[in-house]
Simulated scan of single mutants.
Amino acid sequence: MTLDPDAARLLEMARKAGKPPYETVDADTARQLYREGRRALQPEPLAVAETRDLSAPRPGGTVPLRLYRPDGATAGESLPVLIYFHGGGWVLGDIDSHDGVCRHLAARSGCAVVSVDYRMGPEHKFPAAVDDAVAATRWVAGNAAELGIDPARLAVAGDSAGGNLAAVVTLHERDAGGVAVGAQMLFYPATDFAMDTESHRLFGEGHLLTHAAMRWFQAQYLTAGDEADWRASPLRADDLAGLPTAYVITAGFDPLRDEGETYARRLVEAGVPVTTRRYTGQIHGFLTMGRIIAQSAEALDAAAKWLRTNL
């Protein structure tokens, strides 16, 4: 494999910037570093017809949401909907950090998108993020008429930690007989906290996301022993049968590559229709780096096309 030239340029920019690794600072400082990175790397956002900030109830509080409706959607039209969970290691990121991705998916797919601002560690340990993801999914489905969406055409998606949550929501709702999720899109998902794959060994240093950072994220998010729970490590779920059709993106130079591809293979073995795409020259997180990495827009366009076809 050869590193994509844009990805190589971004890695060199990161090296020269000399920002401290996440695992060497506290969570608040890490969040600020992440916000600065997103502002520098996100391209100009695509236009949509409407954005609306909402909230879904959960025990003891609410989950902030943002609804995007694409251009061309009429006021009374009932649209397919994608519920999106942002990445950031269950510690970093928010609705704003992934605003560009959600706008792109809405604009290119013709679907409504609902972005979810779930609780994160270390302030809110596992399974708070899972609980919020489930609560948001159920609220969106249960308030479809008011939101102008079609609950029979509902998908979930996320990148990295968000891909983990999207996978977990499909499992949770299958087992609970809850929301009928029609499709799942997993973008370089984290699926197993074992973190002992060949891609972790090959790319755990020098490719932006490091093995050390992943261990730090784990410490912020989980309590000892939680890693064995399928709600933290969906690859460890006993049975993946009966899950919705899946679109799984991985990146060739990503420590999470192998666990994402193993999850996709297990879905296939369980009889789930799966479309996979490895962007061989890319690094973890490239979908949010479109100002530097041109292939980001191509990958989001392809994901939006798949969504449009499968909803």
Score class of each variant (00 low, 15 high):
P5G: 14
D6H: 13
A7L: 00
R9F: 13
K16Y: 01
K16G: 12
A17K: 15
V25S: 04
V25G: 02
A27W: 13
A30C: 02
L33D: 08
R35S: 13
G37D: 13
R39N: 06
A40I: 00
L41Y: 13
E44I: 02
P45C: 14
L46S: 07
V48P: 04
E50M: 14
T51I: 08
L54A: 05
T62W: 10
V63E: 08
P64W: 14
P64Q: 08
L65M: 05
L65R: 10
A73H: 04
A73C: 04
S78H: 07
P80L: 11
P80F: 12
F85Y: 15
G87M: 07
V91S: 14
L92D: 08
L92C: 12
D94R: 09
D94C: 09
D99H: 05
G100I: 08
V101Q: 04
R103V: 09
G110N: 05
C111F: 14
C111K: 13
S115M: 07
R119A: 13
R119C: 04
M120E: 05
M120S: 15
H124E: 10
V130M: 05
D132K: 00
A133K: 00
A133E: 03
A133C: 05
V140N: 00
A141F: 12
G142C: 12
G142T: 12
N143I: 11
A145V: 07
A152G: 15
A152P: 02
A155M: 02
A161E: 01
G162Q: 13
G162K: 12
G163T: 08
V169Q: 05
H172E: 15
R174T: 10
R174F: 04
A176C: 13
G177S: 03
G177K: 11
G178L: 14
A183S: 02
A183G: 02
F187L: 15
Y188T: 02
D192V: 02
T197W: 06
T197A: 09
E198G: 14
H200K: 11
R201G: 11
F203A: 03
G206Y: 15
H207L: 07
L208C: 03
T210N: 04
M214G: 12
W216I: 07
W216P: 00
W216T: 09
F217M: 08
Q220Y: 03
A224P: 05
L235Q: 07
L235D: 04
D238R: 14
Y247H: 14
I249Y: 08
I249Q: 10
I249D: 12
T250D: 00
T250A: 09
A251M: 02
D254R: 04
G260T: 03
T262G: 12
R266E: 03
R266T: 03
L267T: 01
L267C: 10
E269M: 02
P273N: 04
V274G: 02
Y279T: 00
T280I: 02
G281K: 14
Q282L: 06
I283W: 06
R291L: 04
A294E: 11
A294T: 07
E298P: 00
L300W: 04
L300Y: 09
